[in-house]
Design a protein around this nucleic acid. Sequence first.
DNA 1: GATGAAAAAACCAGACT
DNA 2: AGTCTGGTTTTTTCATC
Lengths: 156, 156
Amino acid sequence: MKSNSKSVKIDGIDKKILRFLMADARKPVLEIARNIGISGAAIHQRLRKLEASGLLAGSKFIINPKVMGYTTMAYIGIYLDKAMSNPKAVKLLGEIPEVLECHYTTGNWSILIKVLCKDNEHLMHVLNKEIQQIEGVSRTETFISLAQQIDRQITI
Amino acid sequence: MKSNSKSVKIDGIDKKILRFLMADARKPVLEIARNIGISGAAIHQRLRKLEASGLLAGSKFIINPKVMGYTTMAYIGIYLDKAMSNPKAVKLLGEIPEVLECHYTTGNWSILIKVLCKDNEHLMHVLNKEIQQIEGVSRTETFISLAQQIDRQITI
DNA sequence: GATGAAAAAACCAGACT
DNA sequence: AGTCTGGTTTTTTCATC
């Protein structure tokens, strides 16, 4: 799976196929074929080509965290001491399962992370007993997401 | 598809099934069956149950934005005038395809969004010609993600 | 891209424990 | 309840045009 092939050519049919599969990864190829009006084999070949180009980065089942009791999402900006290297901090953050995203950002913070917790108490625990305990983390700023109102991939 | 059924019971087999499908939504049920050691029909039934419980929020093909030329990701904190309502702002932000996430957050900003652009010039355009043009947006703070080092769902 | 055939998987109904 | 065993339908996959 290559990942940096520049200028992958995508025509209108490819876009239609991808739009179907981005919405539902398990949609049968033949069903898409009937919708678009070409054969299933053609779609199959296009998918092989798109996969080889590195455009397709896999597929995922999406689970609803709320049903599992995870209702508190937050972004946390982290200030690191000069002595603390970014890769080491990322490694340690990666060991905290509540950390879903980690970005090395410009601006005030060294790192911006997204965490998902069951409730505010859980979030407090993750902040005080997990993140703040990491050596090199000097300060944090927390922004709780009261509602996630948009969540999507890029439009193709 | 219910979405708020509290206390959905998940046993070890359910977890194994979900872990397979969260990593690859198109993995054949029979293949999972062989891995776990139960019949395909049993897995099929469990998936129906999990779907009915609202835990399964669908599946998605993941495309690699880099291959499409989108290499600049950023978080933007937005300050809204008192006169601007959150829902209206969200509606207008939703019309900007580069906006992938939108959170209503506690803290300094009214809204925190994630945007994905082709390059810095594109990001500048989205900031100045799209977001800043929205009536009620008084100020923004931008944090460019130099590298996304973790990206995952909650662990089950 | 399309077609047709073989292999695999999904799906369903009834029996089992 | 939850799971299994067949049997049918559908989909995937491959070779060929």
